[in-house]
């Protein structure tokens, strides 16, 4: 499965546990977890498959936390689709 953003949005990251994301397609502004923000940033340059995303995420996550990563990633992707920030092909 491939995931992509509708458009190139804008991100405000103040080094907190949440980031602000402006979706220029819908015009909506969202408060996302930093993890969700990271996922969106990975997808903005080009669409990625779930596996590709897993690799990127795994590189930047503490190995101790990796066990639940797949589930967390799936959950976040679903939520981002529900917010209409992402679509899946």
């Amino acid at each position: 499965m491939t995931w992509r953003t509708h458009s190139k949005g804008r991100l405000y990251d103040a080094n907190e546990s949440t980031v602000v994301y402006f979706d220029s397609y819908s015009g909506d502004t969202h408060l996302l977890t930093d993890f969700a923000g990271f996922v969106v940033q990975q997808l903005e340059p080009r669409p990625l498959t779930t596996e590709e995303l897993m690799h990127r995420v795994a590189d930047s996550v503490d190995p101790d936390d990796i066990a639940d990563l797949a589930a967390a990633l799936t959950g976040v992707l679903e939520e981002l689709v529900a917010l209409d920030i992402l679509t899946r092909d």
């Binding site: 405000y12 103040a14 907190e16 949440t18 602000v20 502004t29 408060l31």
Partner: peptide, 18 residues
């Protein structure tokens, strides 16, 4: 208070942010 939160709350209180 946190900046990201304050951003969203201030945007919510804005007449023309959107």
């Amino acid at each position: 208070r946190r900046r990201s939160d304050s951003f969203i709350l201030a945007a919510y209180h804005s007449f023309n942010y959107s």
